[in-house]
Amino acid sequence: MLKLPRILAGFLLTAVVALVAGCSSPPVRQASGLRRLYILNCGEGVAGDISRWSPGVNVGQSMPFADNCYLIQHAQGWLLWDTGVDDAIAAMPDGLAPADPKATYWRRPKTLASQLAQIGVSPDDIKYVAVSHSHPDHIGNVELFPRAMLLVQKAEYEWPGANNAPRFKPGHPVTELEGDRDVFGDGSVTILSTPGHTPGHQSLLVRLPKTGAIVLSGDAVHFRSNWDNRRVPALNFDKDKTLASMQRIADLLAKEHAQLWINHDKAQRDTLKMSPAYYE
């Protein structure tokens, strides 16, 4: 048998160990630049008949609704998730009553602009505005941020509004997404395609360094009992896609050991810290 010099044999052994270790090591994820998440009060209301959202259940019962926006601070810039009902509603003493009494009666206790100012953020500081979908209680203040890049699914952006009018101002900067998007490229903030409530509905996965993972639901679900029972609102665009999106979120919650923050669930929001407090 050929005997190698001790020095050469040691060198070869070191090289083999290094090669094996390199092959078995997981890829290194870029360090997260995510810093803080603020919850903003973007509306409070009363749903006149919650069977609109849970067909055949709770018929004729009303329920308080919340409307949240989320401001995310990242080393690469600020991202605002949803913009709530129009700030102009704050000047209406009696709020904004819906045409359909079964729908939601909205009030605006605080403007979005004033809550941003309270933490020293101006509309021009916002780099991205991402919206879960194009219903008025989520896009009411998009044009407070005319320079911000709008992140929206292509299917939502192209979905005709009333009388075939566009749902967003055509001149607003926009990135039309076709599926998921890692917003900052470090895995900390990921837009999730969750269609069903509308054609291009999306949710948001946020991986906070201290709090951990959170999924912001948008309107993939409206309140906890609908989530627990997988109920689909009659007014949703596509029932099967809604159920598939719910299952996708459930699988992600399990994989990420994540919390689910349901946008309109006021009972849940009452347990959370509101801006100017924040989550890290």
Rank of each mutant, 00 (worst) to 15 (best):
H133V: 02
D100Q: 08
P173H: 09
A91Q: 12
P195C: 08
A220F: 10
D82L: 02
S203P: 07
Y70G: 04
P209V: 06
E44A: 11
K169G: 00
L151S: 00
N226P: 00
V17T: 13
L116W: 05
V232G: 00
A165G: 00
R207E: 08
T198S: 12
R52L: 15
P276M: 10
N229Y: 01
A75Q: 15
W227P: 00
R36D: 13
A155M: 08
A155G: 04
H133Q: 11
L40F: 09
S54E: 12
Q118R: 14
K266A: 15
P123C: 05
D87S: 07
D82P: 05
F223S: 01
I39D: 03
L205H: 03
V17S: 15
G33P: 06
P64A: 10
R269Q: 15
I50S: 00
F145D: 00
H138E: 09
L272G: 03
E158D: 14
D125H: 10
R36G: 10
K210S: 13
A162D: 15
V17E: 09
F65M: 11
V183Y: 07
L216G: 03
L4Y: 13
L13R: 13
K3F: 09
D82F: 04
K255V: 07
D228E: 15
F11C: 14
F168W: 15
I191W: 07
M274N: 10
S54G: 07
I214E: 05
F145R: 01
P26S: 14
A99Y: 01
L204Y: 12
H201I: 00
D124P: 00
A277P: 01
L2T: 12
C23Y: 14
V206M: 03
W106P: 05
F237A: 04
A47F: 05
V189D: 04
N229G: 13
V221H: 08
A254R: 13
G196H: 00
Y70C: 00
I139T: 14
L151Q: 02
L235K: 09
L150D: 00
V28M: 08
G43V: 02
G10S: 09
Y157K: 08
A250V: 04
P199W: 07
F168A: 03
D124A: 15
V28T: 13
P55W: 05
T104M: 05
S122K: 15
G185I: 06
L192M: 15
T175W: 13
A213G: 02
F168G: 03
V59F: 01
H172Q: 14
M1P: 11
K266D: 08
V174P: 00
D265T: 06
R107P: 02
A9E: 11
D124R: 11
N68V: 10
V131F: 07
A117F: 06
D87L: 06
H264I: 04
S188Y: 05
W78L: 11
S245F: 03
A75S: 15
P166L: 12
M246H: 02
